[in-house]
Simulated scan of single mutants.
Amino acid sequence: MIMTNQKSDDLDCPLCSGVGGELLFEDAICRVVLVSGEEGRSFPGFCRVVGTRHVREMSDLSAAEQRRLLDVVLATERAIRAVQQPDKMNLASLGNVVPHVHWHVIPRWRDDSHFPGPIWTAAQRAGKMRKPVDRNALHNALHAALKTT
């Protein structure tokens, strides 16, 4: 029998077993991934900031880990705003489906399919399709924003 320090829910965690998108940044505390699939097409520039350690709540992190994670969330928001110029940004940390600390950093436009509601609710209209995010521009903007944290 192999012994592990991981709890049973850690072993099945999709954020522990995979990157979860296209990697834009990673350090010892967290990673930033560009979301793909339908969410990425509908909300180009949508990123997730995922904690490296499998913990369920922000308060399970040390004060230094909390500060770093939030600094990266805010740098990600600044980078998306610079590249995508959305009407609004949404930040969400729910974890009800995947109980692993992660933040959704979502650009929103008044004419997107779900505005003003959350992206996880029913669409309110077809929504304007936007061109895909310029991945290199977002990567560069993110790294520039991180230098100021």
Rank of each mutant, 00 (worst) to 15 (best):
I2K: 15
I2D: 13
I2G: 13
T4G: 11
N5Q: 14
Q6C: 07
Q6R: 12
K7G: 07
K7N: 15
K7A: 15
K7H: 13
S8N: 11
D10R: 11
D10L: 10
L11A: 13
L11V: 15
D12V: 15
C13H: 03
C13Y: 05
C13I: 11
C13P: 02
C13F: 04
C13A: 11
P14A: 05
L15T: 04
L15C: 07
L15Y: 10
C16K: 07
C16F: 04
S17G: 11
S17A: 12
G18D: 15
G18C: 12
G18P: 06
G18V: 11
V19S: 13
V19E: 07
G21W: 05
E22Q: 07
E22T: 14
L23S: 08
F25R: 05
F25S: 10
F25Q: 08
E26T: 06
E26S: 12
D27M: 06
D27Y: 02
D27C: 08
A28K: 09
I29V: 15
C30D: 00
C30S: 08
C30Y: 01
C30K: 01
R31G: 03
V32K: 00
V32M: 03
V33Q: 03
V33E: 01
V33Y: 01
L34N: 04
S36L: 11
S36Q: 14
G37K: 09
E38G: 04
E38H: 05
E39Q: 14
E39Y: 04
G40I: 04
G40F: 00
R41P: 00
R41V: 07
R41F: 02
F43H: 12
F43N: 09
C47P: 04
C47R: 10
C47I: 06
V49I: 11
V49S: 03
V49Q: 00
V50E: 02
G51E: 07
G51I: 14
T52L: 11
R53C: 01
R53I: 06
H54C: 12
H54F: 05
H54P: 02
V55F: 00
V55E: 00
R56D: 12
E57F: 08
M58H: 07
M58C: 10
M58T: 06
S59E: 10
S59M: 13
S59Q: 04
D60L: 03
L61Q: 07
S62E: 02
S62T: 14
A63N: 12
E65T: 12
E65N: 06
Q66D: 08
R68I: 09
L69K: 01
L69W: 00
L69A: 05
L70F: 09
L70E: 05
D71K: 10
V72I: 13
V72L: 02
V72Q: 02
V73Y: 02
V73H: 03
V73W: 03
V73I: 14
L74Y: 06
L74T: 06
A75D: 11
A75R: 09
A75C: 11
T76P: 10
T76E: 11
R78H: 13
I80F: 01
I80H: 01
R81V: 14
A82Q: 12
V83H: 04
Q85K: 13
Q85G: 03
D87Y: 01
D87K: 05
K88G: 10
K88Y: 11
K88F: 11
N90G: 14
N90C: 06
N90W: 05
